[in-house]
């Protein structure tokens, strides 16, 4: 018997008014796999994540998680099933402490609040020393780390990461990359990374999906991506040949 995919997205479409943001998007994610989703701005990447986590409901198509249709489940129910996510613009509980930021998802989305375990997670992401500081006072790199800590605290089966490298300097990018590798090797969690920083992305994933105007235009390994004519067109536009006689 064929083994069940962890996440299966089937012909998902979504419009906002007359703007079709996702057009029949289908893909699967296997247990423990790391998948990259890339695409120009406005191609529907974040909307796709929002559909997966239930913040936005698709117009048609279905999402299966561990073989179960989750279309009608609310975001908090999906979180409890094992979906952890981070946001492009960090959404921390700014007036609460770093530790509290991890305790809350543990209690409501995970196996129960456990201060020792929360501290271990903070040690893993390198924020243990700052555990009593208010989350609003952290730097961007620290905020991204805390978002990661919060997402893994629910012991997810899949981590959905929305531009986790965005806005970081090269050193921080490398550090977060190492952290992701560590999380993956220690927990075996599957990951979906929506990303613009391709250099970092290609170091961690073997399979990418390219979205353009809500459609999947490429699916495969990172090497093939740069060679795909469709992808080049989506990023750089049509090939332009100047008419004869005008060439210099």
């Amino acid at each position: 018997m064929e083994e069940m995919s962890l996440l299966k997205v089937e012909r998902v479409s979504k419009s906002f008014g007359g703007n079709r943001v996702l057009k029949e998007v289908s893909f699967t994610l296997e247990k423990g796999e790391i998948l990259g989703i890339v695409g120009p701005n406005g191609s529907g990447k974040t909307t796709l994540l929002n559909v997966l986590t239930g913040i936005v409901r698709q117009d048609s198509g279905s999402v299966l998680f561990m073989g179960r249709r989750i279309d009608r489940l609310k975001p908090h129910q999906r979180a409890r099933m094992g979906m952890g996510r981070t946001f492009q613009i960090t959404r921390l509980f700014s007036n609460l402490t770093v530790l509290e930021n991890v305790i809350i998802p543990m209690h409501y989305g995970g196996g129960g609040a456990d201060e020792r375990k929360a501290e271990e997670i903070l040690k893993m992401v390198g924020l243990f020393e700052l555990k009593d500081r208010k989350a609003g006072n952290l730097s961007l790199a620290q905020r991204k780390r805390l978002e990661l800590a919060r997402a893994i605290s629910v012991e997810p089966k899949v981590l959905l990461l929305d531009e986790v490298f965005a806005g970081l300097n090269p050193v921080s990018v490398r550090e977060i990359l190492e952290l992701l590798k560590k999380i993956h090797s220690e927990t075996g969690v599957a990951m979906v990374l929506v990303e613009h920083v391709l250099k970092a992305l290609f170091q961690i994933t073997k399979r990418v999906i390219v979205l353009s105007e809500g459609r999947i235009i490429y699916e495969g390994d990172p090497e093939g991506m740069a060679k795909s004519e469709e992808v080049v067109k989506a990023y750089l536009g049509e090939r332009y040949e100047a008419p004869r006689g005008q060439r210099s």
């Binding site: 908090h76 946001f87 509980f93 809350i104 998802p105 989305g109």
Partner: peptide, 25 residues
Amino acid sequence: STFGYALKAIREDETAAETMGVNTV
């Protein structure tokens, strides 16, 4: 209480609270 944590999480960021497993409604 942990009940209060849920409320505070909603106050700080409702979408985040919901995706962290808090039944915000």
